[in-house]
Nucleic acid binder design. Structure first.
Ligand SMILES: [Mn+2]
Ligand SMILES: [Mn+2]
Ligand SMILES: [Zn+2]
Ligand SMILES: [Zn+2]
Lengths: 137, 137
DNA sequence: CCCTTATTGCAAATGATTTGCATCACTGGA
DNA sequence: TCCAGTGATGCAAATCATTTGCAATAAGGG
């Protein structure tokens, strides 16, 4: 991973480019997949014995706020986080094995309609589809 | 509320028609709106001083399992529960005042497409749209 | 009305996430 | 390159919604 790009991006957003933040970004980039705070923490603790889970949470929260990362509630309790890069999309989740597949967003036109019907300003939306994958079926 | 209908419905699903369950159903029916466990608990505790929040949770969970009620994660942390009655729908949420508006489900065709593309068995889905209502804007 | 069993009251535990505070490490400027 | 100021982190403790264990209670079929 080219750190300098991320260092710039962090500074741009008013965040200091700390070791911890860069390490967390690195995991998010190379996995390129929704991960929990605990997931990220486990991966990094090996080489960073005194990294704390609270730091991971604080980092992810600031990334969400700065729109570097998106927070997802795919299954009950644990939240997942994924890098905001590439196409806007949603997720199809296998309820047996937990596989997560990205899916296209079908809501463009629907949102236009909604604006007309409700006079709301639309800011964001969340869509998750739950099913059983072919292997688990 | 006509209790006998609900008593029958509960028995049909293999649940005993207890005072607590009927009271919780009554709140859900008359509010006809997503409510948190705490919401329901507060409303009922006035007349039921020894109803417990844990009972409300246990009841709601069994209702979800028996498909009498649907659990929604509209905002962070607290879950909401709404009676499964009327049209299948989703929600538009005002991020300022918390207003919740039911909206039609636009996903029928999209799900067909998904089945073809992914070979998943689709079981359920969740859609929430966040915005600002005209009054808050 | 009684017996069996599900359900509740109650209190304690859980588990993800947050927070307070002292210390540390970035970063922009000297 | 060094320094001061401020934001970030380590660490431990707190929060808060939700769950759970267990003994006591109340449905409801017979
Ligand atoms: Mn994704
Ligand atoms: Mn609704
Ligand atoms: Zn699967
Ligand atoms: Zn509003």
């Amino acid at each position: 991973m080219d750190q300098s790009i991320w260092i710039d991006k962090l500074k741009e957003k008013g965040l200091k480019a700390t070791q911890q933040r860069l390490a967390i970004l690195e995991v998010l980039v190379e996995e390129n997949f929704p991960l929990s705070a605990q997931n990220i923490f486990s991966k990094l603790r090996r080489n960073n014995p005194n990294l704390r889970l609270s730091t991971v949470y604080r980092t992810l929260n600031s990334f969400v706020e700065k729109k570097i990362v998106r927070k997802l509630d795919l299954i009950d309790k644990e939240s997942f986080f994924e890098l905001l890069s590439g196409e806007h999309h949603h997720h199809l989740i296998c309820m047996k094995c937990g596989e997560i597949i990205p899916i296209d967003c079908p809501l463009k036109d629907y949102e236009e309609e909604l604006i007309d019907n409700t006079d709301y300003t639309i800011i964001d939306h969340r869509l998750k589809i739950y099913g059983i994958c072919p292997r688990c079926r």
